[in-house]
Design a protein around this nucleic acid. Structure first.
Lengths: 146, 146
DNA sequence: AAAATACATATTAAACCGATAGGATTGGTG
DNA sequence: CACCAATCCTATCGGTTTAATATGTATTTT
């Protein structure tokens, strides 16, 4: 599996913050309770360097988090990359990957590159604002039963 | 990462078998040496139920493996699913996944479904024969330097 | 009989996942 | 100033997966 709870929790928390931040900083405790996710685990996730850059925080009473930019500037791809480190489908495509000696004529490398492209194009085409809009359009209920 | 060495090795070995099977059964030893992959590890992979279904085998001297169907009937998606078990991007989409209680109005579920679709559409559009054709068109060399 | 091959099962070191635990630090409020 | 609520920091842990290695057994051709 490509996207673990880390990425999915991060998406849910950022969306939760986006929904509630008009009332001020959103305490992680509240988001965690609404989303039914371990607050302690969320603390770790939210303090990952690339995730914390997406948020402003305030300590003390009435502290919490808010998005540092408007929701339309957060793509799903950006959030997942921040939380997961990388969402490349194979290690061959990682920045720091050591070439394997066959890469120059590897018949699969173009395929992996193509796969990465369709994934990024899709995930980077959806923003937090898109999800907020869709939620208010059809509140409670989507097409899927799992 | 979505696709581990298991999936990538399986693709390489099936392509190797496709290339060499016109001379009869292809011993795993030969494929392993050409591909520089541990033969013992390959034995495990190739005996996974869904992978072994894709091959005919023969024991003894001059035994080995060959594809049980023509190369154009093997999509990259099929091979990866056989080797990896699943290539769904999130566990929420697995067949045996226990619904989480929020699935009825989860705002992310449609996104995961869309992601799974673009991945499957892409990977199921490429067959082993496509890769063989591309190899013979531009032997030794693709566009990527990693 | 010997050799080559597939087939089977167990073990292992390392990494990763999804938490839990116990605090330290900071800032607002009475 | 004392208290409390919140973020921030670091360690630990059980379970699973990954990528092998090891040790065989079974089968077939020569």
């Amino acid at each position: 599996m490509m996207i673990s709870t880390r990425g999915r929790y991060t998406l849910r928390i950022l969306l939760d913050i986006a929904e509630y931040q008009k009332e001020g900083y959103v305490p992680l405790k509240d988001s965690a309770e609404r989303q039914e996710i371990s607050k302690k685990y969320l603390e770790q996730i939210i303090n990952l360097p690339d995730v914390s850059k997406m948020l402003d925080s305030s300590r003390g009473l009435h502290g919490g988090y808010r998005l540092s930019r408007p929701p339309e500037e957060y793509t799903v791809g950006d959030i997942l990359r921040a939380a997961e480190g990388s969402i490349r489908p194979v290690s061959c495509l990682e920045e720091d990957h050591i070439p394997c000696g066959r890469s120059a004529d590897c018949p699969f490398l173009p395929i992996w590159k193509g796969l990465d492209d369709v994934i990024c194009n899709y995930l980077d085409s959806i923003t937090l604002q898109d999800i907020l809009d869709r939620k208010s359009e059809c509140p409670g209920g989507n097409d899927y039963v799992i």
